[in-house]
Design a protein around this nucleic acid. Sequence first.
DNA 1: AGCAGGGGAGAACGAGCGTTCTCCACAGGG
DNA 2: CCCTGTGGAGAACGCTCGTTCTCCCCTGCT
Lengths: 183, 183
Amino acid sequence: MDSAVARERALDAAEELFYGRGVQAVGMDDVRGTSGVSLKRLYQLFPAKEQLVEAYLERRDARWRGELAAYVERREEPRERILAVFDWLGGWFGEPGFRGCAWLNAYGELGATSARVAARVRTHKRAFREYLASLVAAAGLPGALAGQLFLLAEGAMVTAGVTGSAEPAAEAREAARRLLDTG
Amino acid sequence: MDSAVARERALDAAEELFYGRGVQAVGMDDVRGTSGVSLKRLYQLFPAKEQLVEAYLERRDARWRGELAAYVERREEPRERILAVFDWLGGWFGEPGFRGCAWLNAYGELGATSARVAARVRTHKRAFREYLASLVAAAGLPGALAGQLFLLAEGAMVTAGVTGSAEPAAEAREAARRLLDTG
DNA sequence: AGCAGGGGAGAACGAGCGTTCTCCACAGGG
DNA sequence: CCCTGTGGAGAACGCTCGTTCTCCCCTGCT
């Protein structure tokens, strides 16, 4: 098996297991069993579990933001684009296997013990916030709105994760709509 | 040492350590060292670590909501009371040693593996949401506002926890004010 | 054919930690 | 003064898990 293929399989397994059960509940041996990549190979590709966690978060970050942006860009109107963020969140929350925001979960588990993971979570959140800011700017709305929309989105993610309901996305969307209409 | 005193000392130590470093990063031996309560006593009072975690969350829940309510009730005007929630959050975020919402942190660490802890987190969040709903109702505002304010508060907590800044409280307050003014 | 080396399977190692056990000091009642 | 039992200190046990090591197969080159 090619190294690149092994790496993808390892990351596929890591993502499925880490996101589904939590990082600490998953051992390297579980990753080996699910991925079919031997321990020796795993440790060649990722010298320690922490680096596998980082790679998992990094790859998921790219995909998550890419899918969000692709969804949003299907709308033409700048204000509609902003609201589309919450529609997309609602779709995500409703997916089978949704277990909250991967980055917040990782931060809760490892933020206190792994500075590298904590930094990666902050990077992801900053990027998401800046993306919202770019949508707000494109709509000609005041910059302060971006932070408020960000808080609504974060609150929706965390609440959907804890309660297992997709409803928070609709609530956040409605709040966002009212903030937009009075901005 | 009286049993009741030992229990309080154990919970004091558990709270300080679990909140400050995360539950999994703290061993029962650390709790013993900090509290001065012997392991034998600890296991008499709390037959397993999970129950110590539950007791920690329960006691903190009572205090957290009590302090919030006491702060809010110093305001007379119903709308001021709602905004006071965000002022109180800002004060909390700025306290030394603030490390995010204890319940969300515990959920991130243990939600996937301990159903009892997960249930206790949901209970706490439901109680907070219902408290907001009571403030909204007392102000004669539409019930849907409560969920939106809740999302802002949750988003502020999680963002303050990850970034270490108290700023999200002010942002959430401003968003809440605008939602109130157009409600 | 012989051999060097990369890779897989899984045992082994070592640390951490939840939980229990051993041993001892000491207080209180006969 | 002895006996009983409660409690503390800390060793011990058992398990999990991250990481490494051993052994062997198989491939590809000479």
